[in-house]
Write a protein that binds this DNA or RNA. Structure first.
Lengths: 193, 193
DNA sequence: CGATTACTTGGACGATAGTACAACTAGTAC
DNA sequence: GTACTAGTTGTACTATCGTCCAAGTAATCG
């Protein structure tokens, strides 16, 4: 099993490399033309391969989109987990992550948002799209025990991302940090009803 | 001018009625199949007219999408302005409006979000998509003078909508209201940096 | 070596897309 | 009545889509 395994793994590794290339090409297409521009042909052209090869690795377009969304979600998860496990001011690190959406990470963030929106219609994508939100919640859980504060931070993070992406809102780290802090640290006198 | 005007207005009125019908059909299609499902043919079938008639009123698909997004944006603007100008607890009314996205207004809200995301790629749509955000900001401005509190409320509103739409998060009016209040009324000790 | 398997290719099928266009209808002007 | 114009229809052209398939290549196994 091991002997054969190494060879098989070698072959599979080549295939997985191709898969990764195709996924990256897919994200490039989403970045450039939006999710609507994703077709087997455009992706293949972007990746420099033939159309048939794209369908060989992803039989259906849905498979391709699921894989692409999963990929960006994985990246984001890694980033946030890095913040959670790392030292330093977690809230500030989150603010810096959000502000990235205004700069070099803008196109990628836009692609993620587009794929997330797409997830609303494809049940298979929903759990993947939900994950980054859960990650932020987990980060928030290290800062407070109040469930509402956690929900507020998640909502604020998401809303700020939207503001930066759609509205081209000013993206100053200090500014974003203050708004996030407001959600978490609010001394809210639990007004009734 | 008036004599002729009446007749011309009569013709134009008929045309505008058709336009409205087509826009409504477009929203129905976005609601059912997503923005990607919008084609001259699907819209025409939904409206019970021929494909050619759809292209007669909206020469290009972009025109149709712009008109559809403008329509939903108008509706939302009217709702929020009603809250601003009306009596009662504005923040609670906003919470109720947001919570609607979980119930009967869900599909419509989803359609709006989809069109907004689409706006990120079409400069012509950007100002329209920006408007509902400005409306919420205007509502917030009646509750506080702090610009950051306003930004926080807008972000919270948007994030909560996303949570409800994508995450199927619990949508309790009191809950939403408390999170919104947290954004506005935070007694935040302006931590430096 | 041949056999097997993963990988890759070019080309094809039917379906559907955006869009255009000439003809037809109905209401209005004179 | 005729002339005109907005509204409406059926049809057709071309392009691109998802998907499939038979054939070819290259690496590995026995």
């Amino acid at each position: 099993m091991n002997d054969e395994g190494e060879h098989i793994d070698g072959r599979k590794a080549r295939g997985n490399r191709r898969r990764a290339e195709i996924i990256e090409a897919t994200l490039a297409v989403v970045t450039r033309d939006g999710a609507a521009g994703v077709t087997h042909r455009t992706v293949a052209k972007q990746a420099g391969i033939t159309t048939s090869l794209s369908t060989y690795y992803f039989a259906t377009l849905d498979d391709l989109l699921v894989a692409a969304l999963s990929s960006v979600a994985d990246t984001y998860t890694a980033r946030i987990r890095q913040i959670i496990d790392g030292p330093g001011d977690k809230l500030r690190a989150l603010a810096e992550l959000i502000v990235e959406s205004a700069g070099p990470g803008r196109e990628r963030a836009l692609a993620e948002r587009e794929l997330s929106t797409l997830a609303a219609r494809r049940p298979a994508l929903a759990p993947v799209a939900r994950r980054w939100r859960e990650d932020v919640a987990e980060l928030a859980a290290t800062l407070t025990d109040d469930p509402e504060a956690i929900a507020a931070l998640v909502a604020a993070s998401d809303g700020l991302c939207t503001a930066i992406l759609i509205d081209n809102a000013p993206a100053d780290t200090g500014y974003v940090h203050r708004i996030l802090a407001r959600a978490v640290h609010a001394h809210h006198a639990t007004a009734a009803s």
